[in-house]
């Protein structure tokens, strides 16, 4: 209790300074999933039948910026953003949005946040209800949030206009849309309630290189026009380099590095970041790599390595890394890394 009050005091002190800047603040987020049912765990004698999908993650998204969240599959990036919206349960940690904290974790407590933060899905075709028309899909947010008294037809037309789709599509069903059209409908739906923040989960996955620019340019244009903030979750490093202001790299559910995108791409601090950047194939036959880069695989969440969780794959591993887990600390102004021997220093 005393601890709680103390942190509140500190937090409110910080809030005085940063309230204007930070739109979303996540502090110490942890998400655990049960691996065994209650009875089975009891029978198997498992003391801790959980895995940590997200562990000890703190970050802030500033108003008007684009924050990139990068990691390989299983790194917890999607789970993290779903936890922000209360779609998966947060085990511990705090979420503040626009200055107010989400106190309890009921659907009711999250409802206002779900009005201000929209989620854009990886597969827009699958994220639209298959038996609902485009009109009904993009006006549904108003009905859910008790704003059905508006002129929904006008709203629907305006939204389609904003994403550059013809009004004729309003009566189409999702399976009648092309991939690009479905993605634009997804954007329109995300925009419906005029949110402050849009979380986009792999916005370019499955798109050809000649059309992924269309979606990203549209998102960029809308950001300028409406003052939106974005969190973009992706594994596509070449894309995130162009479209994000700041970046966090996740590994086994933790942030291993965070900082301004340009700085990270210019000089990564964490060996994992370096390996990740080096693994991206260069579309230039003169720049072939003779070395495969990062060896090995991402370890299982069931069996987290001791010490630094990256040490088994790290090219710069030292004795300390095998026993002592590093914490995410500020290495350079605005740049954090979880490494005992950050690369820029050596």
């Amino acid at each position: 209790m005393r601890w709680h009050q103390a942190t509140l005091l500190v937090a409110s002190g910080c809030a005085m300074v940063e309230a204007q800047a930070n739109l979303l603040e996540v502090e110490g987020a942890r998400v655990r999933f049960r691996t065994l049912g209650f009875l089975r765990a009891l029978i198997a004698g498992a003391k801790d039948p959980y895995i940590d999908a997200v562990l000890d993650v703190s970050f802030a998204v500033r108003a008007g910026e684009t924050f990139g969240l990068v990691g390989e599959s299983g790194s917890g990036k999607t789970t993290l953003v779903r936890a922000v919206l209360g779609l998966v349960d947060l085990w511990s940690g705090r979420i503040r949005f626009d200055g107010s904290e989400i106190v309890d974790r009921s659907d009711a407590a999250f409802k206002p946040i779900r009005r201000q933060i929209s989620l854009m899905f990886q597969d827009p075709q699958a994220s639209l209800s298959p038996r609902k028309t485009v009109r009904s899909s993009i006006t549904e947010p108003f009905i859910i949030h008790n704003m059905a008294d508006r002129d929904l037809e006008a709203e629907a037309r305006e939204l389609l206009g904003m994403v550059g789709l013809p009004v004729g599509l309003l009566d189409n069903y999702p399976h009648q849309l092309s991939g690009g059209q479905a993605r634009r409908v997804g954007v329109a739906r995300a925009l419906a309630l005029r949110p402050k923040l849009i979380i986009a989960d792999e916005p370019t996955a499955g798109l050809d290189v000649s059309v992924q620019g269309e979606v990203l340019n549209l998102m960029n244009e809308l950001q300028g026009r409406l003052g939106l903030s974005y969190v973009i979750v992706t594994h596509n490093l070449p894309v995130i380099r162009h479209v994000s202001d700041r970046l966090a790299i996740m590994y086994l559910g933790r942030f291993v590095e965070e900082g301004p995108t340009a700085a990270i791409f210019a000089r990564p601090l964490h060996p994992y970041t370096l390996g990740l950047l080096g693994a991206v194939p260069q579309p230039d036959p003169d720049k072939r790599r003779e070395e495969p880069g990062l060896m090995g695989e991402v370890p299982s969440l069931n069996n987290r390595p001791r010490g630094c969780e990256f040490h088994a794959r790290c090219l710069y591993v030292q004795e300390r890394c095998r026993v002592d887990a590093p914490v995410l600390t500020e290495v350079a102004p605005g740049r954090r890394a979880a490494c005992h021997f950050p690369l820029a220093g050596s």
Binding site: R82, L85, L87, D107, F110, K111, R114, R115, S118, L119, F121, Q122, D123, A126, S127, L128, S129, P130, E140, P141, I144, H145, R189
Partner: peptide, 14 residues
């Protein structure tokens, strides 16, 4: 399916 998650993300109740 994702569209169910999408509905929940919009704030739709069960």
């Amino acid at each position: 399916h994702e569209f169910i998650l999408a509905e929940r993300a919009l704030g739709a109740g069960p």
